[in-house]
Design a protein around this nucleic acid. Sequence first.
RNA 1: GGCGGCGUGGCCGAGUGGUUCAGGCAAGGGCCUGCAAAGCCCUCUACAGCGGUUCGAUUCCGCUCGCCGCCUCCA
Length: 452
Amino acid sequence: MLRLHDTASGRLEVVRAPEGAPLRLYVCGPTVYGPPHIGHGRQSLVYDVLRRYLEWTGQPVHHVSNVTDVDDKIINRAGSELRDWREIAEESEQSWWQAMDLMGLARPDETPHATEFIPGMVEVIEQLVARGAAYEIDDGVYFSVAAVPDYGLLAHQPLESLRSGARVEVASGKRSPLDFVLWKKAKPGEPSWPSPFGPGRPGWHTECVVMSLGLLGEGFELHGGGTDLKFPHHENERAQAVALGRRFAAHWMHHGMVEVGGAKMAKSIGNVTDLGELLASTDPRAYRLLVLQSHYRAPIEVTPVQLEAASQTLERLDSLARRLEEAPGGELAPAADPGLLESFRERMDDDLDTPRAMAMVFDAVRLANALLAGDDVAGGVARGRQALECAAAVGLRAAIPAVVSEAAAELASRRDRARAERDWAAADHLRDELVALGYRVEDTASGTRVYR
RNA sequence: GGCGGCGUGGCCGAGUGGUUCAGGCAAGGGCCUGCAAAGCCCUCUACAGCGGUUCGAUUCCGCUCGCCGCCUCCA
């Protein structure tokens, strides 16, 4: 039974779908105005892990994640590059999915685009105006936070204290500095859609309300996103739903930021590492492992040193997989002792304690290796398979050794013959040849093992 | 100013009121091996500081110092 830290209550809460139904998960996706950075990568990994884990336990998931494809940032970039805003959005989204595929992420079941839901958003805005929760002024339609008695629930601050800290300028006509724009009236040259308030485009906070409720339904189980979205984005989503009289997310989860030298990585600060860059230079699994080795709510540093350490760790997983593949009688290994799988689930169910879960996995890896090296091969295989299964449950797959070329296989068997004849010079020479071909060479009880 | 979080061994990074432990990386020693690689074993015994509670605190409470996040766009 999964329990997660719920941002709304501040406590661990059981997150559960109705019997037999998929667990409905909504995650705030990217605004596509540039290539994804490693912070986006972490986010996608966190929810990929959650989703895979749930599915592994037999709980299906209905995962929706939006794509904000119309927004000031996109429009501004289009303006400065003298290009069509749609082109920016499309190309940025492409690079997004490219990176996600490279990371081995299961795509969300649905990826709604803001521009596809504008009529629905206009409808919601009209309803909010009709209910007195929104008002129109010169430049747009604004939501009145005063209309929601428990505004500040996610921020854990009363309206008054949020207002006193507000750094945002009071737009002319806004009733409260915290009021936020629902509909932006178009200026000349800006993309626009028709509405009763004149041509314009929606503000950012409305799309997620319309898409999540529309695609998942009221009271969907879980809404996620970066901790920086708690306020105001998620607060404002929720405020709209409340003002509409609709049940919104039952639970909220927020993941921590990627930091650089202790400071949040953000495009606005300029300390951003491109995700594509990282994936080009590292085994993408290393980033997944790095994410798994820290808790999702904690901030993480992603440095070359850490990625290198993670890659080394991965090598333990991969070498175990090679060993299992060759273990004599592996097919006859006894059924896995459920002990590890049970404790693994316990750790995961406790607010996705992936660091401890991973510690258990690597503990099991070590134990499996010890058994395999000793006289309990069957036990080692069973234990090893458990370890690999747990890793796979969170999307971490041991590398499947590349198919060895005929030439390499020939070199390997010649080396075995040389070794049998104790012709070490020839054996070492053959090993060098294999290495030159890009293979790694290990000796095993059954002879030379080559892999890439 | 308000709200929230953090400070752990050479590095990263978990966790807990008390016997033995996170885990990984790195380092050193050993085993195995013709050598190497992989693997296994051992070593490296830390919890910012100061008080308090307690039979006992890294873990609870208070204070101090340092750092960070949110309150504006942001994953």
